[in-house]
Design a protein around this nucleic acid. Structure first.
Lengths: 288, 288
DNA sequence: AGGCCGTTTGACAACGTTGTCATCTTAGCG
DNA sequence: CGCTAAGATGACAACGTTGTCAAACGGCCT
């Protein structure tokens, strides 16, 4: 016996659709989220869909509204930077739609929050760099509008202080999560602090940029320059040298979000709202 | 007035879902397909979903069947390598589901075929390499199971012959579309044919691998070694040096597939079945 | 054995469209 | 002016579940 999905939808006034709203160009990250959602949805006979939202006057509210007026959705997942848009969350709450936030800047009541301890993660990978003997470090930031980047940086400075490394030997460069900003950061670094030996990039793409720029300038990685990244994206495994990176279980985070979202839909009530995931340093060639 | 989707589904016995089945790790490619689908679906109030199929005994048939038994789907899009799986296509035809093939190895009757002229594309980008003065060339293949890679190679050899370059100055190395295989190919190249000056990689990821390996070995790109890729993926724009690549309009191909698929669903008949798209060489720094 | 309560079973309306069939309208032609 | 054919309009069953409400059932206590 195969229940008819459409009839079920009509009778139960549910759509059996979970939708992920995003605005993040990192397709590896998005794919992992989608895969986690898909697995959870498949277990329950739900449909997983994804929708890119375009910002309008600094908010995703308009794009979201356009979508919600046209489609029925039982649950919503928001990933950064959409997971920090209050106007979006208000609209969703107004419609009483269960929703989950992946890695939000601020934890939200009455929503599922799925996250890692970004600051602590930044701290631990910086500690690792220091333990490998580096005392002249650089941090390459992501976009400051991403709360996660700021928190990772806070962890970086915490590690620097804890190790009592002189701040004058430490440099912070502004990036934007893109590979290009990694190249640019390397150039800046050579001008401002050529004697830095350990770099912590706020994501793997920038780490790739730095490594490629370093190789192109005749520097050996990790001999002349050690680099660690963040996210453990496919890049980190695929690059040459492979990249030491801090892994967060994005797939599982999306899976759990979706599971809990579906539970919420059924129970019509939210029980637990915060789910912290642990991270892991994946040691590879760029900082062995 | 907002029609109720569920009631419409039930009454019309349609699901308003278009599903993309894939098994390709290239998330950039997948995202472009999804985006094209999404746009077309949004125009018509359809849902776009994607499902990764796992091969079972060399075929995707089992995974597809599992899916079709659980979900209703109005139309199906297959991308390589699934678009070459006959068992999958038979199953879909048995159920009278309209379907579209993106870049299939063989055009299929009674299906929408959306493709570029892979051979001609391979030919033209090789012609470009030759026109830039290179006469010692290498081709880095993708997986031979991907028809597209074989066709690109055919175009490569056609260009070599047309330019009457001696075959002994030309080398073919086996890759698998991954960055790692690009690194490996560079190493092989240095052993087998260190005087090659122009490389055509069957996709951009391998081109990245080659370039990174070259930089790491003190070679300048493009001065010592010119590299061209294929697909014009985000890499090509983001790398340093940026990569000359052959662009195919994946987004538009997926968009048209979906549009035509929806038309087919409505008309209950397929009128035109073949849609060829044109390609473009995007000239960047790796082979200016 | 009878009455009470809790639980299982069964029947049926409701969900909001689509599509069919019948009726009504109108235009064209003899 | 009347008849026919074609097109516009309206009424209503059907789609296959869910959820409600009533009835039947069974166990337990008195």
């Amino acid at each position: 016996y195969r229940p008819n999905i459409s009839a079920r939808q009509l009778a139960s006034k549910r759509s059996f659709v979970i939708s992920h709203f995003y605005d993040n160009p990192n397709t590896d990250y998005l794919s992992e989220i989608y895969e986690g959602m898909r697995r959870a949805c498949s277990e329950q006979g739900y449909y997983a869909v994804a929708e890119k939202l375009a910002p309008h006057k600094g908010s995703y509210h308009k794009a979201l509204l356009d979508y919600l007026l046209r489609y029925d959705v039982d649950g919503v997942i928001l990933s950064p930077p959409v997971s920090d848009d209050m106007a979006v969350m208000r609209e969703i709450e107004k419609r009483n739609i269960p929703y989950a936030l992946i890695s939000p800047g601020k934890k939200k009541k009455n929503a599922i929050n799925v996250f890692i301890d970004e600051k602590n993660a930044g701290r631990s990978i910086t500690d690792y760099l220091i333990a490998r003997g580096h005392d002249r470090l650089a941090f390459i930031s992501g976009l400051d509008s991403h709360a996660a980047s700021r928190q990772r940086e806070a962890g970086f400075w915490e590690a620097i202080e804890a190790a009592q490394l002189p701040k004058k030997n430490t440099v912070r460069l502004a990036g934007d999560f893109s590979m290009q900003s990694g190249f640019a950061a390397f150039d800046m670094l050579m001008k401002k602090a050529p004697n830095v030996t350990g770099i912590f990039a706020a994501n793997d793409e920038m780490a790739v940029g730095i490594i490629v720029a370093a190789l192109g300038n005749g520097k050996k990685v990790p001999q002349d320059l050690s680099v660690v990244g963040f996210d453990d994206s496919p890049f980190a495994r695929a690059m040459w040298p492979t990249i030491t990176s801090l892994a967060q279980p994005v797939d599982e985070m999306a899976h759990l979000s979706t599971q809990k979202l579906i539970e919420w839909v059924h129970a019509e009530a939210l029980d637990q709202s915060r789910f912290e995931f642990s991270t892991e340093i994946i040691i590879r060639e760029s900082c062995p």
